[in-house]
Simulated scan of single mutants.
Amino acid sequence: MAENRASVYAEGGPCWVDAQLPDVDAGKRFYGELFGWGFEEAYGSSVWARLEGAPVAALAHKTDGRMPTVWTVYFATPDAQKTARRIQHAGGQVIMAPLPVGAAGTAVLAADPEGAVFGLWQPDGHPGFGVRHRPGAFAWAQLYARDTEAANTFYGHLFHEALFGPGAEPDFGRAPVGDVFPEVMPPHFLVHFGVRDCEAALGAVSRLGGRVQAGPFTASYGIVAVVTDNQGASFALLQR
């Protein structure tokens, strides 16, 4: 699949991801080796990951040890305040109100009615991914939900054109939790990164101190394996 520049991101498209980690330096070593990322200082305690110079993700230090070690996907919005209100009116929850991130843009953290956490990004100086849909970059976001019809209703209300409009290519799927995980697993988003060879990437994950949670298995969008990094953050490898 061809590379896509961040300028094409419309409302409701996944446009950025970040990981909240106890040890950012350890994260740089893990993901730098796994995906070939380079890093530069960004805002606060976070760093930007770059793939051949293009921004692909951020790694941030957890400010509270009670916070989960997790990857979060951010959906583009032209108006973070307005979209946050729509989330609340649709039965979701705003976890972090719109927060300016320097001159980069405005971030929101929210949860859908089942509790799956996601972000919103209103861009300013930083529009989002510099590259995606290639090995080492963002490839897909999968929501594992209890009720996929309810999820379609909620996200369709928020981002109808991105998900269901003419020519929509949302990079965002919905599936029942039990398709891959134990039924007791809470609903959640799983960020997928592209790889050329899923089996080879799984070997690298294990060598670097991560572990395999599920797969590889064949999904409608490619060959997928669910893994955790060496600090416990879950993500997926996607071979198209």
Score class of each variant (00 low, 15 high):
Glu183Ile: 14
Val224Leu: 11
Asn230Phe: 13
Gly102Pro: 03
Pro127Val: 09
Phe39Tyr: 11
Ala26Ser: 15
Ala162His: 01
Glu199Ala: 15
Gly38Cys: 02
Asn4Met: 06
Val131Tyr: 07
Pro78Gln: 05
Thr72Leu: 12
Ile87Asp: 08
Ala26Asp: 10
Gly53Asp: 00
Ala19Met: 08
Val56Trp: 09
Cys15Val: 05
Gly105His: 00
Lys28Glu: 11
Val94Glu: 11
Gly215Trp: 07
Arg211Gly: 12
Gln231Asp: 07
Val70Pro: 08
Ser46Thr: 03
Val56Cys: 01
Gly203Leu: 11
Arg86Lys: 11
Pro78His: 02
His160Asn: 15
Pro14Ile: 03
Gly232Glu: 05
Leu208Phe: 05
Ala175Asn: 12
Ser45Asn: 09
Gly125Phe: 08
Ser220Phe: 14
Tyr144Lys: 09
Ala236Gly: 02
Leu109Ser: 11
Ala110Ser: 02
Asp147Ser: 14
Trp71Cys: 10
Leu190Glu: 12
Ala137His: 00
Gly156Arg: 07
Ala201Glu: 07
Tyr221Gln: 13
Leu208Ile: 04
Pro166Glu: 06
Arg132Ser: 07
Ala145Val: 13
Ala80Ser: 03
Trp140Ile: 04
His160Pro: 05
Glu114Gly: 14
Asp179Gln: 15
Gly167Leu: 02
His160Trp: 05
Leu120Ile: 01
Trp16Phe: 01
Gly173Ala: 10
His160Glu: 12
Ala80Leu: 02
Gly128Thr: 10
Ala90Val: 07
Pro216Tyr: 04
Phe217Met: 14
Gly102Lys: 04
Asn152Tyr: 10
Ala76Phe: 02
Leu99Phe: 06
Asp171Tyr: 09
Val73Pro: 13
Asp25Glu: 12
Asp23Lys: 01
Ser7Val: 08
Ala10Met: 02
Gln142His: 06
Tyr31Leu: 09
Phe39Thr: 01
His157Thr: 14
Gly194Phe: 11
Val184Met: 15
Gly167Cys: 07
Leu143Trp: 13
Ala58Tyr: 00
Glu169Cys: 02
Lys82Asp: 12
Gly209Phe: 10
Glu33Thr: 09
His188Gln: 15
Arg85Ala: 12
Phe138Met: 02
Leu237Thr: 10
Glu199Pro: 05
Glu114Gln: 15
Leu238Glu: 08
Ala225Leu: 13
Ala168Trp: 04
Gly136Asp: 04
Gly165Asp: 04
Ala137Pro: 03
Val205Ala: 05
Gly128His: 00
Gly209Pro: 12
Phe217Gln: 15
Thr77Gly: 01
Ala236Asn: 03
Ala60Phe: 03
Glu161Tyr: 05
Tyr31Trp: 08
Ala110Cys: 08
Ala116Asn: 11
Ser220Glu: 15
